[in-house]
Design a protein around this nucleic acid. Sequence first.
RNA 1: GUGGCCGUAGCUCAGCUGGCGAGAGCGCCGGGUUGUGGUCCCGGAGGUCGGGGGUUCGAAGCCCCUCGGUCACCCCA
Length: 438
Amino acid sequence: MPATRLSAPVGMHDVLPPDSAAWAEAVTRFARLADRYGYGLAVTPILEHAEVFRRIGEHTDVVAKEMYELTDRSGRRLALRPEGTASVVRAYAQHRPTPPWKVWYVAPNFRYERPQRGRYRQHWQLGVEAIGAADPELDVECIALAWATATEMGVPALRLLVNSMGDPEERPGYLEALRAHLRRAGAGLGEAFLARVEANPLRVLDAKDPDWQEVIERAPQLAEHLGAAARAHFEAVQAGLRDLGIPYELAPRLVRGFDYYTRTTFELQTDVLDAAQNAVGGGGRYDRLVEEMGGPATPAIGFAMGVERLVLAAGLTGRVADRPRLDAFVIDALGPDGAREAILVLAELRAAGLRADRAYGGRSLKGQWRAADRARARYGVMLAPAELARGAVVVKDLASGGQVEVSRSALVGWLQARTAPAGAAPPPPPAAGEAVDP
RNA sequence: GUGGCCGUAGCUCAGCUGGCGAGAGCGCCGGGUUGUGGUCCCGGAGGUCGGGGGUUCGAAGCCCCUCGGUCACCCCA
């Protein structure tokens, strides 16, 4: 009986070579950036008590209808992480590290929703959380790091939207005003509209229904309801962004999906992605969440970016794939007795830090050279009887086709002088106007 | 969760209104060159036509169900 062909669960996908090279590039660059900004790595469990995620908003879609919940063998209610902040904040509340505490992470998130390109049931996010400081300067740093991440990867047509959610005390007054306006002005817009007004009036603000736009545009804005402290904070953030030369747009109707945001919120969008998934990343301040997780009252801010969307928007896959992947490819022309020699040369090259490989499986000489070509090696190093007898090997430049004889003892030095250390060459940013293939 | 479009070889697709044993290009393997890739020539491997059921003398093509992808909505990274 033939075995059934198995496949990954709906909305979950494999990232494999050669495409995974773009991922390695994105993660490596982000890790270096975060390190430069003073953030350390945080690794938290993929499962948490479901309770942890409820704190991010019982009535948000992410929690109410998209969360993967399960009961373990002891009857505990657990959930797969739907977003990054809650786990990190729980870790902070649990371990009480000395603030300010700055960490970065790369981790998979799970949301049970209908998948689309750039929108998956398991998707990866990279991000940071900075816990323990209320300074607007920290907001600026956080936004600057998000901006640098996206621009360094080469995301084109990038836009930074910023808004302030104000402080929690100001929220009820605003919601009341908003709801009153929407009820009055949108009375004729039908059931779906009114249902959303009652359930979550903030969500009406970023709805896409064209019929609703007129009512939405005339709705009272968060910014008009900010208290003095929140207003001063928001102005300081904007001043900081201007000082750093980071272009931003005020987005009074920017509403993000979690209930925990206070004061500054922001989102990075790009026009090269379809509108349904044009948010590459986003974040904001959440000054009450640590307390809600059982920790001391502690202000905090963070952001996250979707790795799939980042790679897609930056067109990283195509750019990274063109780079040579190996410095040398060892080719065995010695016949049945050559294996030992090939193993030794290969080990020597690798020990010297060169990226090297060979073909296995007893390939013909022609097959080995073809394998060298497909492995995108810069040089082919052939071990052949005549040359080896006088202590030398044949080295061929695969790009030019030129071929020279190099003494075996000088081989490592010869190659090192002609190849860059692994990972040293960043992919060039896309040229202006270059089409990005998603 | 709702709706539109689509599922034929590893990839991109062709197969007219159901009809000789299912094709192309690219990719892969081998040979031409038992010591040389990327070009060229020759040959080869590889397919439950997404899956199941039905209609029919006969189904890749029609009908039903189902699974998956994609786009929009919802929402979000």
